[in-house]
């Protein structure tokens, strides 16, 4: 279980004396069950990327705490993998060299790096492209390279920032199913940031809805029963049924509820601050 307790972040701009605080998010309380996939849903600028950065240990929170299975989490940790919105691949390293980067930094010898990386590249269909540089790959392939790099460090916590936003509609659905398959094979807790209600509902067992800006905050959370990890990723679970779930009435009801929550908040906000739009 990954827990955020009263977590807040202000960015500090400028030097000590003239420092300016830019609030990113306020008083977050989250609980991600181990092995679950959860989503943070919210409009641009509400602090979604900032949340991932704090959980990843790249940015220190201003207050509040993060607990992983009860133990305080601070700073970077070797078993947390982050996949950034634009994948964060190094243009001067080919597919294989990008994928093994985490292992290189852990000072694993070359032979061992290959031994770990090649099955993953094989699994992701990247083996034939391992000598290609990222700039010559499509968006979907780049994303798989980023996934390979993340999987190589054998993470138990995977953070993804709008992982599917730069893919076209069909590629996006395939990538979503691919993520579910990956999760089925590996016990990890996954937190992803999304702009899309349908995507969040399809992938997650818990959805946090955010609103506001400087700071953003959580306005609602939803538990999506049919997506519980035990059900979906258990031993004899209905793996082929992901697809059927996509158009199921059951999920539609959740999507509707989430949309209603967002709209309710938007109209509240409009009344409070005339002339200001809420969610984009």
């Amino acid at each position: 279980m990954l827990e955020a307790r009263n977590l807040s972040l202000d960015y500090v701009l400028g030097k000590k004396r003239k420092a300016e605080l830019i609030p990113a998010f306020r008083a977050l309380n989250m609980a991600l069950p181990s092995g679950s996939i959860s989503s943070v849903l919210g409009p641009s600028g509400c602090g979604k990327t900032s949340i991932l950065n704090v959980i990843a240990g790249l940015v220190r929170p201003s207050s509040g705490s993060l607990l992983l299975d009860g133990a305080e989490l601070s700073g970077l940790r070797p078993k947390t993998a982050v996949i950034f919105q634009h994948y964060g691949l190094l243009p001067w390293r080919n597919v294989e060299a990008n994928a093994e980067l985490g292992l290189l930094i852990q000072r694993l010898p070359a032979a061992e790096r290959k031994k770990k990386i090649h099955p993953i590249l094989e699994e992701l269909g990247l083996m034939d492209f391992r000598r290609f540089y990222p700039d010559s790959l499509s968006g979907g392939m780049k994303q798989r390279v980023a996934i390979a790099r993340a999987l190589a460090i054998e993470p138990d916590l995977l953070l993804m920032d709008e992982p599917f936003s730069s893919l076209d509609a069909l590629g996006r659905e395939a990538a979503q199913d691919f993520l579910l398959e990956l999760r089925k094979k590996r016990p990890m807790t996954i937190l992803l940031v999304s702009h899309s209600i349908e995507e969040a509902v399809y992938l997650s067992e818990r959805v946090y809805v955010m609103a506001g800006r400087n700071p953003g905050f959580i306005v609602d959370s939803f538990d999506i029963e049919p997506n519980r990890a035990e059900k979906r990723f258990g031993n004899d679970s209905y793996s082929a049924d992901y697809q059927n779930m996509r158009d199921s009435k059951e999920l539609l009801v959740y999507a509707k509820a989430i949309r209603a929550s967002i709209n309710r908040f938007m109209s509240d906000e409009k009344e409070a601050v005339p002339g200001q739009g809420g969610l984009a």
Binding site: N53, A56, G57, L58, L76, P78, T80, A81, V82, F84, Q85, H86, Y87, G88, L89, L90, L101, G102, L104, I105, Q106, R149, I153
Partner: peptide, 22 residues
């Protein structure tokens, strides 16, 4: 780009790695 630096930092890169890898 900040994202590039952060993505390598998240893999545990120290200053030396950052200099020579990024």
């Amino acid at each position: 780009s900040r994202e590039l630096v952060d993505s390598v930092r998240s893999l545990g890169a120290g200053k030396r790695d950052m200099a020579f890898i990024v």
